[in-house]
């Protein structure tokens, strides 16, 4: 192996002169958008992952632990799902809550792209959790997938819509507190409606459909606002 070693060492040139300055000045390869999205995963707070996992576990365990009570499984989830939506909304709005929006907006991956990244990550996570729950309930309870989906999505979209609206209108941590209060309200309502009083199911279904649709619309409006026009609001806060 001596010859290989000799070859490797025989051609050492004198020290390069401008290496550091040149490399510094070069437009080094930047992160692509997908790499950027991946980089944001570690900035999503741990509590979101933990809570999602907890929700999933509760849903799964409810199937085995508790005897099949048509509505029981559903209201357990609708007591928890609102908080999942709340966490998502607060996570998305973190920039505003903590006053980072201005600095972030001036970066290469500006605020809309950052929010988009968070939504992609959380969207995938929530979609997985909710789909799993809907499938489990649809399968194991006599409700069927459609009803299960409606009962799960209603609290989710309602809270999503309300939280995003609140966080847009009320600045900072105060907005978070109000969102939390609203979420608790929705959660209690869900527990109440499904767990206790025997409401007319047609009424409940109609109500859910309306709320769910409303939630979706409000969410879309708020997100559209964040992505495009929200820029106008900076500076008037803080």
């Amino acid at each position: 192996m001596k010859i290989e070693k000799a070859l490797r060492s025989a051609f050492t040139p004198p020290e390069p002169r401008n290496k550091d300055k040149f490399i510094d000045s070069m437009r080094y390869p930047k992160l692509s958008y997908s790499e950027f999205v991946l980089s944001q995963i570690c900035y999503i707070r741990k509590r979101v992952w933990l809570f999602s996992a907890a929700v999933l576990l509760v849903a799964i365990s409810a199937v085995y632990v508790i005897p099949q009570n048509e509505m029981y499984i559903v209201w357990v989830a609708s007591a928890l799902i609102p908080f999942l939506a709340l966490m998502t909304a607060t996570e998305i709005s973190r920039s505003d809550i903590f006053g980072m929006s201005e600095i972030e907006a001036g970066c290469r991956y500006s605020l809309p792209q950052l929010i988009g990244a968070r939504m992609i990550i959380l969207g995938v996570c929530n979609f997985t959790v909710i789909s799993a729950i809907v499938v489990i309930f649809g399968f194991f309870s006599p409700l069927g997938i459609m009803k299960a989906a409606l009962y799960i999505l209603t609290p989710y979209m309602t809270v999503n819509g309300i939280s995003l609206l609140v966080l847009d209108k009320v600045i900072g941590l105060e907005g978070v507190y109000i969102s939390v209060a609203a979420t608790i309200g929705v959660s209690l309502a869900g527990v109440f409606i499904f767990g206790r009083v025997p409401f007319d199911m047609r009424f409940v279904n109609a109500l859910c459909t309306v709320l769910c649709a409303g939630g979706v619309i409000m969410t879309v409006i708020q997100i559209e606002k964040i992505m495009s026009g929200r820029n106008e609001c900076y500076g008037i806060k803080n």
Partner: peptide, 11 residues
């Protein structure tokens, strides 16, 4: 490091 990611700078 957080801002670096936003500016597209590799780790």
């Amino acid at each position: 490091m957080y801002i670096s990611a936003l500016k597209g700078i590799p780790k």
